[in-house]
Nucleic acid binder design. Structure first.
Lengths: 202, 202, 202, 202
DNA sequence: CATGAATGAGGGTTCATTCAT
DNA sequence: TATGAATGAACCCTCATTCAT
């Protein structure tokens, strides 16, 4: 393992520890000393790897933003029906949250604009892209007759995304229901909620 | 107006200003001086009305927690069908959020447990009560045949509440859709999503 | 004494204490705690009056820069001969240094450009003005025949000013010679050094 | 080249780089990392050649102090007239400053007493020796009738040395005037300023 | 009640220095 | 010898809180 590989690994460890604490306690309530302690270091040592606490947050965010969008893009690129795509996309969303709960908690709950306007704008842009993809999916469903004609696409997208995001506040793996059960339940609610009642064209 | 009435009014003004700032910037990022400045006061003067910044948050939370539950209890006490009650309850939820966005933002996004375990427990208890009422409503709908038999009540409740809560992040009065339009859209999604497909008893 | 007068007085006390320490130890070697201790305060309290340590330096410099130039301008406006003006101006320079040794030490020895480019530029500009006035004086002496024709005006000015400035490093009131004796000696050296040897026009 | 020669050479490089930075930015504003960077090294590596930052300064100062005195002693040992010796000594002073501006900037502007009282005392002693030599020269001129009787020798020496030292603040080789021109101008000023007006013995 | 002033604890950050490799 | 890494003390600065007036 080269020197710079070791360094990169350490940076990643620091990002991971910081992300966890930022997600758990919030950016402001997390002290550099907390992050350092989580890694058995001194606070000052962190500055060997990051220029500032803010830089830590920016580094975390920048390194992960875009993953969610990419994953949904894959789902959309498939040949499945809109119904199947929605089901799959909801599962993907929840799975991403489970795998990277820290970063998504930061995206959703931290006021990034107060910390770094640039990174906030970056995250917002990705969020808008994500919602735009969902919008395309829903619109396609309406046009193809799988989904109701009378829905408002943008509010519907907000609803689906908000629904999925809300799991951040309560879902914990190992609880009563598995992630797949929850996403199944969500998908059933959403699909039934949006389904065209009669056949296509009604 | 008696002296103590004036005092109570001032306390309320302070709570309102603090609630707004806590909601906008977060508890940690809000300084006592910010709150004071919003009221054309000096930071030190706040201590005639609150013992501490924490106490301010606790006061805000304690004075409002329970309103949401009470409002839902009213909805449940009515004679309407489950379907109508759900529709009304969603509207009530969104309306409460619009009227008191600050306090609900604090409930949803602030880590109360890190500030005051007691108040956090209090809020959580009310939240559980609120969800319990929703649970009763949903269960009644299932039993009465208005709602699908195969739903998981607790996840369904999480879904509905999470859906409604998510409006805190994007809904702004005066936007493209009115609050009633959004709640109508949400209700349609939820009701269609949960509706028993065949007639009662199927 | 009004509230804002008291405040202004305190600011002045802080500036004076800071100026003295900056002059004695240098800006970087002076800690905010040192300044505060000189005033029987806590370091944090200084921030009630100044935004930063840098701001303290800037405040000190900005409030005094220009005094030396003004004083020389007065000398130049008089009706005396160039010879007398030079003598008077040298005395004025040394007297200003004695009265405000702190600020002039800062001007001369602190690297202001590393602390605040704006304030450094301001001080430099004043310094150039000061030298320009000396240049006018010396040139007038040459043209009027009081001073030698073969001198280089700019170097001569640097010499005179450098000579006077050097007293910052060694002159202390109460020493063997009084300030007037030193300035008399300096003036004699400079005037004899620059005097036209023959009569005017030689 | 032996191992210890290589080491000595490296020490000298480090001293040179450190001296330059200390002169440019000041001791406190110069970081060990800056010095190391100037030599394409890591800060930690400097500790193979110096025990501390302070030690670096001490090493620089100790290795050069005395050169100026030696050079003046040579001038004094010659057979020239006092007038010629003064002219030569002024040139030597300015030349030494040009060749070793860094070290003389440190001598003149750094508060050595705050860093190492011993080295400060050493430098001061050398400075006093230097001034004593100048004093001998001036006194000889007075006694020999070349210089005015009424001058105060010590102030005159301070004046000459201060004058020469001030070039550190503004003289840059390659400017409008050469170093020889400046020292010629200075010598003319000083010699005319000190010259006995009547013949010897007046 | 309200304010201006002051406090002091604590947090982010810097940097000379050390040390295992 | 040189480096990357880590340390820890110290510094600047913030801010909730207190208090005399």
């Amino acid at each position: 393992m080269t020197v710079s590989e070791k360094r990169a690994r350490k940076v990643e460890q620091i990002h991971a520890a910081a992300a966890r604490l930022f997600a758990e306690r919030g950016f402001h309530a997390t002290r550099m000393a907390d992050i350092a302690a989580a890694l058995d270091m001194q606070a000052g040592s962190l500055y060997y790897y990051a220029e500032s606490k803010e830089d830590l947050l920016v580094g975390i965010v920048e390194s992960r933003v875009g993953v969610a969008v990419a994953s949904l893009r894959d789902v959309l690129a498939s040949e499945a029906s809109v119904t199947d795509k929605i089901r799959t996309a909801i599962t993907a969303h929840l799975r991403a949250f489970q795998e990277d709960a820290d970063i998504y908690s930061i995206f959703n709950f931290e006021r990034l604009g107060d910390i770094s306007p640039e990174v906030a704008e970056h995250v917002d842009r990705r969020g808008r892209e994500y919602e735009a993809l969902w919008g395309d999916l829903v619109r396609a469903g309406v046009q193809g007759g799988e989904l109701r004609r009378d829905i408002d696409v943008r509010v519907t997208v907000k609803a689906i995304v908000g629904l999925c995001n809300s799991t951040l506040l309560w879902f914990r793996p190992g609880g009563r229901l598995s992630l797949d059960e929850v996403s199944g339940e969500f998908a059933a609610l959403v699909l039934a909620g949006l389904a065209a009642t009669g056949g296509p064209g009604t």
